[in-house]
Design a protein around this nucleic acid. Sequence first.
DNA 1: TTAATCATGTAACACGTTACATGATTGC
DNA 2: GCAATCATGTAACGTGTTACATGATTAA
Lengths: 191, 191
Amino acid sequence: MSLKYGLLGLLNYEKMSGYDLDKVFKDSLAFFWQGQTSQIYRELTAMEKSGWIVSEIEVQTGKPNKKWYTLSPQGKKEFMDWLAAPEGAVEDLLHVRSSFLMRLFFAGELPPEHTAAMLQKVRAACAEALENMSSVPGIVDNYQHMMPDAERSRYWRMVMFFGEGYYKAIARWADSMLWLMKKQAKKEKKK
Amino acid sequence: MSLKYGLLGLLNYEKMSGYDLDKVFKDSLAFFWQGQTSQIYRELTAMEKSGWIVSEIEVQTGKPNKKWYTLSPQGKKEFMDWLAAPEGAVEDLLHVRSSFLMRLFFAGELPPEHTAAMLQKVRAACAEALENMSSVPGIVDNYQHMMPDAERSRYWRMVMFFGEGYYKAIARWADSMLWLMKKQAKKEKKK
DNA sequence: TTAATCATGTAACACGTTACATGATTGC
DNA sequence: GCAATCATGTAACGTGTTACATGATTAA
């Protein structure tokens, strides 16, 4: 659902090809929405058919031709309508979907050591994710030229803060679950 | 991917019909994995074809017939293999996917008041979600009979703690973003 | 009398994932 | 010589979503 609108949003900043969109998408939106290259091309074809975007081909020599996409007035309207639409927008953020938690739910079928090891991996993954985040401000700066004004990137930073808070929350949770398991293991031994 | 295994996991506790599974699923697993009723029936049909589960029909009068599903040895094996499989299990928890954040990213196209209102709704939704969570321990107790032993539900509680931490983190984030926006609005006025 | 519960699904469509295809140019 | 970059996709399959169908019984 959102992939479409992500692409429209980027095209609203500037004219781009599918290839460009793929890269910019992965640099900016991929933190909260993942899309395969093949899917991006499919959506672009579909949106052109709907008249939301318009393409023109630039013939290149030595390289494959480039297909430049531009937002049509209708596409801009669709984007703005989606952006302002309130339906389901808020609930969505609280929505969790995770196969890790599914495994944890059934973890009673395995020895506790297995789960403890997984939680430790979660801890490590959080630490790594938080470290990797230090490169994001640089990326934001690199894209400053694309944004019509500086205020635009304020929201990008808000999304970043969300990521930070999220990773930290998971780390804290994993720590306290590990502590809980240790306590429980001691109790078991006494018996 | 996980829906299948969620159903197997529940059938590992006890024999159930699609209808039962649908309800139990929504009471327990739906916090971290959503599945429509129609999807559940589809997966059950598919898994029976694969030989992971076996069905027997109970003829009822006054009510529709019931189709009881049991885990086959192969199904149990598939479940245990999935449960212990480490591939991608951890990364998955750190994975974010949210159309709310997509909208926030592009929020510069709208007046800041619009975004502030959305953030306030997020705050309210977190508070509500945390309140609703108080009923979960009761649900866990209700299902105690299904679990082979008390330790099994320890992991259910861990999942619950995750939810709590998650909602609290979002609430804190939303608060600080609102504070940030207020500060910024004052600056704008001065100019 | 109206809604909820019991119990099964089918059909169609939208979206996500994986694998594959092509082929020149540039940097190590 | 080999990998990466540039640039386009198609095909097939898997999963998620929405709408619809049936029809008796029971509780408010």
